[in-house]
């Protein structure tokens, strides 16, 4: 076993959980600000589901390491987070939020569909649970993306701009972590390349059908999950503010 990664599964679960938590927080920023009331409610629900998925993954991590899930969320500094820069980006406009949600939902569906066969039973069981909930997100963001991409000139232009900004970052969602080879060999997680390929097979034709142009990947996506965009620190400062103000508080 690799000395520097005594618990590759714990590392992997932490990265996946952090993506869910940070995206949940970004989506929650729309509460009270969404373009229509129905979408305010929908985004709040989706954020709450992602938060639930983060909790499930933190608990799986905690079962291996003894960590406290609440402490993982509220008392870790930027450098200890393992979120991808894709989910850290500010929420942007509605097109940016929906495009990111669609790309993320499709990635999650592709992952969960494979994880239900994981050799690690607790992960396989959690995946089966999360997949059923994810169906609702995936459908919602898919419908929105069609409306935005094929809607007005302005909605199309904004959605294309979002794709141009997000596509180069999306690859990091799949980028293998240093300890992943062991997990893949043991049948615990799918190979990163197969996961990404399955995702592209779904999203490429769909984006084209939405009248969008997929930008060329001119540089490799960020790979190291210990390096963050400048947007994570302010997000954590806000998200962790109350918990850190009174760490002993109970509610």
């Amino acid at each position: 076993m690799n000395e520097s990664h005594p618990l590759p599964l714990a590392d992997w679960l932490l990265a996946m959980a952090d993506d869910q938590l940070i995206l949940a927080h970004r989506n929650s920023e729309w509460i009270g600000h969404a373009p229509i009331l129905e979408e305010d409610i929908a985004l709040a629900n989706i954020a709450q589901d992602e938060l639930g998925h983060a909790m499930v993954l933190y608990e799986l991590h905690a079962a291996l390491t003894g960590a406290d899930p609440d402490a993982l969320a509220f008392f870790r500094d930027t450098a200890a987070y393992r979120s991808a820069q894709f989910v850290e980006q500010p929420k942007g406009d509605w097109a940016f939020t929906m495009l990111r949600q669609y790309l993320f939902d499709a990635a999650e569906m592709a992952l969960l569909t494979r994880l239900v066969d994981s050799a690690y039973a607790p992960l396989a069981q959690a995946a089966a649970k999360m997949r059923n909930e994810e169906l609702y997100h995936y459908r919602h963001s898919s419908v929105w993306l069609q409306r935005l991409g094929r809607g007005t000139a302005e909605s199309h232009q904004r959605t294309q701009a979002a794709l141009d900004a997000l596509w180069p970052l999306a690859g990091q969602l799949f980028a293998p972590l240093p300890g992943d080879a062991l997990l893949v060999a043991a049948g615990v997680i799918p190979p990163a390349a197969a996961w990404q390929e399955a995702w592209e097979e779904v999203v490429r034709p769909f984006l084209i059908a939405c009248n969008l142009t997929i930008p060329a990947q001119t540089a490799p996506p960020p790979a190291d999950r210990a390096r963050h965009s400048p947007h994570l620190a302010p997000l954590l400062a806000e998200m962790q503010q109350v918990a850190r103000f009174d760490p002993e508080a109970a509610w």
Binding site: E38, I41, A42, N45, Q48, G52, R139, H140
Partner: peptide, 13 residues
């Protein structure tokens, strides 16, 4: 259907 999401996670409108 007006909204696939509602007042709680388990409800649609």
């Amino acid at each position: 259907v007006k909204n696939n999401f509602g007042s709680t996670l388990c409800r649609a409108i």
